[in-house]
Computed example of a mutant assay.
Amino acid sequence: MSQRPIIALDFSSKNQVADFLAKFPQNESLFVKVGMELFYQEGPEIVRWLKSLGHSVFLDLKLHDIPNTVEKSMTGLAKLGVDITNVHAAGGLKMMEAAKNGLIRGTESNKQVPVLIAVTQLTSTSENEMHEDQLIEVPLTESVLHYAKNAEKAGLDGVVCSAHEAEMIHQATNEKFVCLTPGIRPSGSEVGDQKRVVTPSEARTIGSTYIVVGRPITQAILPYEAYQTIKNEWNGASK
């Protein structure tokens, strides 16, 4: 079974999402990412609507707060039926454990608990920025690895990371540990504000579990064709 790239729905409204999805076959089950921009405009209903259309949803809100608040929030998010959601690993072990407990408690007994992953370092963050802005003096890869090990220790399913870091994270955790990698750009496309990017083929070779692709699909003249090209490359097919 072929794997689906996760399409980042970086839009501001449901109407914009509907216009975008209208360019795809109606029976095509997609894996989509709902981030802060869309969720804060449309609320939980956008997730319920996407699920009703048969799509899988990665709810990318990157929760980072005190453990009690995160736990209660995750209990509510689990009731939306999301497939993947996340927190910031910088929130610490107790917060990540609380997030997992909240997801478990909020998931109906006959449903699968959503995959829970932690953000390590954003793919827009350079090593120099990490040193200057966060006062983290170790190399960026060491910071990412530390966060990944903590996420595993807290019982999470994986992390958000650059594809460049997937192999070392698997070595430090386990082969089933999820590495969800944004910053994916087809060969020859614009990098934008992402600092650490790879192609779908490179991500597959390096060991990404999931890839997230936004503008190369959402801003393409022919979005479905762009999606198919990336999907084929991600799955190792030439066409």
Rank of each mutant, 00 (worst) to 15 (best):
S201T: 15
G76N: 09
K111A: 11
N174A: 10
L180W: 00
V32I: 11
R105M: 05
L38G: 02
A154G: 12
G158D: 01
I66F: 12
L140D: 00
A98F: 05
S29G: 11
L30Y: 12
N232M: 14
N15G: 04
M168P: 05
T209G: 12
G76Y: 00
P44A: 12
A220L: 08
K111V: 04
N110Y: 13
A8H: 07
E202I: 13
P182M: 04
N174K: 15
G76Q: 04
H170V: 09
T120E: 04
E28V: 08
A148L: 01
K239Y: 15
P44M: 09
G43S: 04
V191S: 11
K176D: 15
T229P: 04
V70C: 09
V34Y: 00
E127H: 08
L9I: 03
Q26L: 15
G54Y: 09
E142I: 09
I6N: 00
L140V: 13
T181G: 08
E132D: 09
T205R: 14
S238R: 14
N15V: 06
V82S: 00
K239P: 02
V160K: 00
S56G: 13
G106W: 00
E137W: 06
T173A: 05
Q26K: 15
P139I: 10
L50G: 01
V82H: 00
T85M: 02
A220D: 11
P25K: 07
N174E: 08
G54S: 10
P5G: 03
F58C: 04
I211A: 01
I169V: 11
V34C: 07
T218N: 08
H170Q: 14
Q41M: 06
V144D: 00
F58Q: 02
G92H: 07
P186C: 07
T141W: 10
P25M: 12
E225Q: 15
S73Y: 05
E190I: 14
K72A: 15
T173W: 10
T85G: 02
W49K: 06
S189H: 14
P67H: 05
V119S: 02
V144K: 03
S238D: 11
S52Y: 13
H55L: 07
G91S: 09
V82Q: 00
M74R: 02
K100A: 14
A163N: 05
D19R: 12
M36Q: 08
G92K: 02
S143C: 10
G76E: 03
E202V: 12
L93H: 12
L30Q: 13
A237R: 15
V34S: 05
S52N: 14
T125I: 13
K94F: 11
Q219W: 06
E132Y: 06
Y40R: 13
E142T: 14
I104C: 08
T229A: 13
H146D: 08
G214I: 01
V138S: 11
T69M: 11
I46Q: 03
A118F: 08
A154N: 05
K231D: 09
V70S: 07
T173N: 08
I184A: 00
G102D: 01
V191C: 02
N150I: 11
V212E: 04
Q219P: 10
A237C: 11
V115F: 12
K231A: 13
R196V: 06
T107A: 07
V178Q: 06
M96G: 08
T123L: 09
T125M: 15
G91R: 00
